[in-house]
Amino acid sequence: MCAFGSDAALRHLLAIEQRMTPGSRNDRLRVYLAQVAASRGMTVAQLADRLTPTLGLDTGITLDYGPRSFPVVTDEHLTAFAQGPTGRLLARPPKPGVKDTRPEAYPWFLQFKKDLRAVAAAQVARLERDMFARFERPGRDLPGFLLPHPVLGPITRRLLWGEYDTGGRLIRAVRVAEDGSLADVDDDTVTVDDGARLRIVHPAELGDDLPRWARVFADYEIMQPFPQVNRPAVVLTEVERAATGLPGFGPVVNHRVEAAVNGRWRGDGHGHSSSPYTRLWSDLPGGLTLLAELDKPVTTSSYEPVAEHRITEVWADDTLADHFSADRRIPLGACDPIGLSEALVELYALRG
């Protein structure tokens, strides 16, 4: 199917891959998708972009009753409207009248609106995953494909993009201005080479520019499709990056710890309801694990929801180590900044 399948089949495979949890089957599927993308001279992200349905919006669609027809247009949030004779967007589509010969167009339009919402939601979720996964696109794809796309365009123009060097370090962040040009944090027009490495920026990569970018998006009243410049983020200072651990904090309560181990975090012995644990851990991209030590055990079978604990220390170790080392030898600056930020945001949320 991957080698010879249709675009429809590849769309199904992409949808399956996005729903699967990590594991060998998921890894194999990603290899297949990468092979298909490479055969077309693309990355998986580019392939997914090009398989995004347009639902006919690229060629124009109408609510056609026969004697009467109304152009269908979408706003920046991909809500579909019928357009009246004066150009006004109609809050409700006109219902067919007695002289209309195609009354079936009315339920078609209602279904179209639902389909558009579903496609838009799926693409928003995919692009958010792209931010976490650091999927790159060449600079030419932004003006050449993404922005003109009737579904991806309204989403991508409300995101903050970054140009990266070959080592994966952020060179600068840019937004799409109202005229389709690119602007930096000072609102100066900038250009990006066709072959530049573009990614959707995670706020943990922005450092001191994060509050400035948040103000820019607020000033222009840009409502982002998912939390980005206003996403909670933990950005380490240079001192913290050089350190091999972060100080503890508290109090934290049992029910918040239990919520954490049902998400990104795990507890020692988690999965064995009677096993107490005093350590939380979360795998980070790049082969490291973030760990947090509790001052006293949590038992999942009979814990007191309001019992208080403290996190005594936070540090990183090799994921594949047989036993996590008692030595604190890995500087936190060696951790993936995006994964570290997401994990620390959840850990600090235990404070309530």
Rank of each mutant, 00 (worst) to 15 (best):
E128F: 07
E128M: 07
R129Y: 12
R129D: 15
M131F: 01
M131Y: 02
M131G: 05
M131N: 01
A133D: 12
R134K: 14
F135S: 13
F135L: 11
E136W: 04
E136F: 04
E136Q: 08
R137V: 13
R137S: 09
G139V: 01
G139Y: 01
G139S: 04
R140V: 09
L142W: 09
P143H: 08
L147Q: 06
H149G: 06
P150C: 14
P150I: 12
P150Y: 06
V151T: 12
V151Q: 05
G153V: 04
R158Q: 15
R158L: 10
L159G: 07
W161F: 07
G162W: 00
E163R: 02
Y164A: 06
T166R: 14
G167L: 11
G167A: 15
G168C: 08
G168V: 03
R169W: 13
R169E: 07
R169D: 13
R169Q: 15
R169C: 15
L170A: 04
I171K: 00
I171E: 00
R172M: 06
V174Y: 05
V174W: 00
R175C: 01
V176Y: 01
E178C: 12
D179W: 09
G180E: 06
G180Q: 10
S181T: 08
S181P: 02
S181W: 06
L182S: 09
L182D: 03
A183Y: 07
D184Q: 08
D184W: 01
V185E: 09
V185T: 07
D186A: 13
D186L: 10
D187M: 08
D187F: 05
D188H: 15
D188W: 05
V190D: 01
V190N: 00
V192C: 00
D193E: 06
D193L: 10
G195E: 13
A196H: 05
R197K: 11
R199F: 03
I200W: 02
I200K: 02
V201H: 02
P203A: 10
P203N: 06
A204W: 10
A204V: 11
E205R: 04
E205N: 02
L206Q: 09
D209P: 11
L210V: 10
R212N: 15
R212M: 14
W213M: 05
W213E: 08
R215I: 07
F217E: 08
F217Q: 10
A218V: 06
D219Q: 14
Y220H: 13
